[in-house]
Design a protein around this nucleic acid. Structure first.
Lengths: 339, 339
DNA sequence: GTCGGTGGCTAACTCGTGTTAGGCATCGGA
DNA sequence: TCCGATGCCTAACACGAGTTAGCCACCGAC
């Protein structure tokens, strides 16, 4: 007896009406069809029994499950995925939707199987999140299921996508240094990467807007040791820069260590700006890192927002790329230019 | 035409049989009921149409959705949650189940609503994961839905739970130092916490087993600065310890910084063992941290394993607490005892 | 020739809801 | 008195499967 949920029929019996009447009450069709007294009786009966409509049966009939599917290539490896997932879950929740997540681990076969499994469950839309912003071939079979990509681009430009605005972010990083009075600004780290190119372009945008000449650029890789090595070189030469923007926080941490090694104080002698806001790192360096945050949470929110709009409007999301702002997180590694 | 999935009726029509026959094929009831020739015709028709049974309709009839619900209090804040989620998703996937996740953000009201939303979707079981291992009052209403707690304990001992074996983990940390020949071993960090007490007990277990006298214990808190301060004190006194086990990796990082400040080399003069394996930290300290890992992924796997067993056996998971091993992750911060 | 059994298949019901067409009063007006 | 309109409600079907009971033809045995 404890095990079985009450159905709309139970409620109907208790209120002395048909189950149709119960359905009306729970779907806003009561007004004009059911007398206020009857509505009240039904509501009371439902409350007493603790009735809640069965979402599975409802999904079958309505052909909407109020569930959106999320397939990603690496959820555990980075806190970013967690942020994106949180953003997605929260906007979904606000619209009374839930999120069904599958991690493909980057395996295309599993990825296709994951999409199939989600479609079998009749999810209302699919959010496809990648960890690296490359172009991505979606498994086919999703047909006209509303689909939005997050942090990656569709192979053909036929799907909606949500991405960080790397170019503007690059400009933001550099502007943080310019605003503090720096004029000799270097760029350290980076790989053969769309993001690297975009951020560098943003860097140049900011320099140009301020009428400042370009400094040295060292695309040395994306790891702590890369930042360390490049900075050691860069900072021991003549005419050393007073500010450095980095490809990411790992590289920036390497730069901080190199500065410490060379006896340069940060931010006294040198200012450093990171990228990504990898908080486990950026909050714990000495000094804590001023950095440009990737909008992972916002991407999750925006992507689900697009999906929900498509679902309620029963139209595919417009296949445009939306770029989201990368906000500056001010901590302690930027100070006024020395001298 | 592209938009609508084929149903079992479409397959039936194409194969010239009833939809019941199709259902038989997809549920292992074909043998003995359908001639091999008919089976083959059905299979062929299904393949040509790309038919896959609708999981929503199937869930309604079978009263099993092949979805398990996961409610957690903080998914984004730590990489641990991601690990747990990954473990859960993987074992679920291996059994052809998916995971429906809700983050309550620690709000008990939302938590209850989340459980209701999951039950509405008729999830086959619920995995309740917390970030801190305190006792937890489950929202009622889950009745006899199979439920397993991960990383926390039920308020009454009426539910199954999966936890790290903190005591054994504490012993593992200390044993790593004992095995390297250390005899003066300190404990740094910790809060008023079950985990702290358990790990300390394990520490003493290991010392007792090796017949080594207890060293200083500083329950100084759980942050980097706490570790730094405590270690500065501890290491500058006379008769300083040669090995330290820490409450967590943040504390351990503080200890490393204190050692550097005092001119002690790690692991030459001092060996340090962390706890948690917070990789973003432990992999990037100098030297990289030898630490005891919390079995988050294993907890996710074990919890879902228990749930699946309960679901297929249609019996509640036995309300016992299962403690999972915390493995030692060897990196570079432990060396032979000096002298 | 009838009876019982068996292999091969389907009609008809079920799960719990949403939805459409229509029934049955009652009421006002001619 | 009869007619149409209106207010209130329900019967019956649909969604897409899984499941039970049973039909029908064929076979062998008596």
């Amino acid at each position: 007896m404890a095990g079985s949920r009450p159905t709309s029929k139970d409620v109907a019996k208790r209120a002395g009406v048909s189950h149709t009447a119960v359905s009306f009450v729970f779907n806003g069709r009561a007004e004009g069809n059911l007398s206020p007294a009857t509505q009240e009786r039904i509501r009371a009966a439902a409350a007493e029994l603790g009735y809640r409509p069965d979402a599975v049966a409802r999904g079958l009939r309505r052909r909407r499950t109020a569930v959106i599917g999320l397939v990603t290539d690496h959820i555990a490896s980075s806190p970013f995925a967690g942020e994106l997932l949180t953003g997605a879950m929260e906007t979904a929740w606000a619209a009374e939707h839930l999120v069904l997540t599958v991690d493909s681990g980057g395996d295309p076969v599993k990825e296709a199987a994951a999409v199939d499994a989600l479609l079998d469950r009749r999810v209302d839309g699919i959010l496809y999140a990648a960890m690296s912003p490359y172009r991505v071939a979606l498994p086919d079979g999703l047909g006209d299921t509303p689909t939005v990509l997050a942090n990656c681009l569709p192979a053909g430009d036929d799907r909606a996508a949500v991405l960080p605005d790397d170019r503007a972010g690059g400009a933001t990083a550099t502007r943080a240094l310019l605003d503090a009075g720096h004029r000799r600004i270097a760029v350290v780290g980076g790989i053969d990467d769309i993001a690297t190119a975009e951020r560098l372009a943003g860097h140049r945008d900011a320099l140009a807007a301020a009428g400042v000449a370009e400094g040295p650029v060292r695309h040395a890789g994306g790891d702590l040791s890369d930042g360390y090595a490049a900075a050691l070189h860069l900072l021991s030469g003549p005419d050393r820069p007073t500010g450095v923007t980095c490809y990411n926080d790992r590289v920036a941490t390497g730069v901080l260590q190199a500065a410490a090694r060379l006896g340069l104080s940060v931010p006294g002698d040198l200012s450093v700006v990171g990228f990504d806001d990898q908080r486990m790192l950026s909050e714990h360096t000495a000094p804590p890192l001023t950095t440009v945050a990737l909008p992972h949470r916002a991407m999750g929110e925006a992507a689900v927002g697009l999906l929900l709009a498509a679902v309620t409007g029963s139209t595919a999301p417009p296949p445009v790329v939306r770029r989201l702002e990368c906000p500056l997180v001010v901590r302690g590694s930027v100070g006024p230019a020395p001298r």
